[in-house]
Write a protein that binds this DNA or RNA. Sequence first.
DNA 1: TTCTGTCTTGAGATATGTTACCATATAATA
DNA 2: TATTATATGGTAACATATCTCAAGACAGAA
Lengths: 138, 138
Amino acid sequence: MQELTSMRLTTQRQIILEELLKVTSHPTANEVYDMVRKRLPRIGLGTVYRNLELMAETGMILKLEVGGTQKRFDATVAPHYHIRCMECGKVDDIKMPVQEGINEIAAQVSHYQILGHHIEFTGLCSDCTGSQQKTSIN
Amino acid sequence: MQELTSMRLTTQRQIILEELLKVTSHPTANEVYDMVRKRLPRIGLGTVYRNLELMAETGMILKLEVGGTQKRFDATVAPHYHIRCMECGKVDDIKMPVQEGINEIAAQVSHYQILGHHIEFTGLCSDCTGSQQKTSIN
DNA sequence: TTCTGTCTTGAGATATGTTACCATATAATA
DNA sequence: TATTATATGGTAACATATCTCAAGACAGAA
């Protein structure tokens, strides 16, 4: 685990965080790379991955490992849920109350020590509605 | 979308499904490959991927795109939730009632057409408890 | 049966996403 | 500043997933 105190404040880190704070779209590492490169053309993709991972470890940002193969990153660290468009893969926030009780229910029915939960809705965004109709999974 | 009727029942498909039905561990494609290879040593990894994807499309099995970068597969198709061990990555079922109401809540607060949801708990499995302590995310 | 067209497979090539490595550069500190 | 541990950028390596295609297997027609 990375210590917050030992993390140097480099230009790259500042800009990565700034760019992430600008958007609510939960960009992938590669999308962050594209955003940051407009201001720091010589930044390396590895630096972006390294720092996103590091910032997620320290809790500065959130790493979402939701559907789809890529990791996504979110500067909103307060607990909240997400919805993913099955058609285009876009991920948005769902502004609904956090389901407080369900961790306790889960603790009762499993042998795990519960640390948290995440709800991911699947659906069709307004751009993709119309062209597609699929059946609900659960 | 693949038609169920047009899907031939090949030895490979039978064995992939049989092996998947044997376990409750939500194996990755590669783990399925290893399991199946014990009975069909000459099967190709592509065949495993192809057929898992196909069976997921027809609804014979469930494809889980939960935390972690790899896809996992589940022969239990009835709606249910999962818990993932933060330490070893293992995924287990959580036998708790499906939260019926939350799709409607989500529909009200978003512009998406809601198709479903999935809840993923994170925690520490009984094997990993003790060595680690982490703070809850949400 | 044998033929014929279609579906499926296995093997390898390719694509995609991520991490590791290392020489150089740089922020923090004394 | 001079020092030094840490961070960077470029590239290679790796892991996962998908694509391609010739050869094989199968179902239905002849």
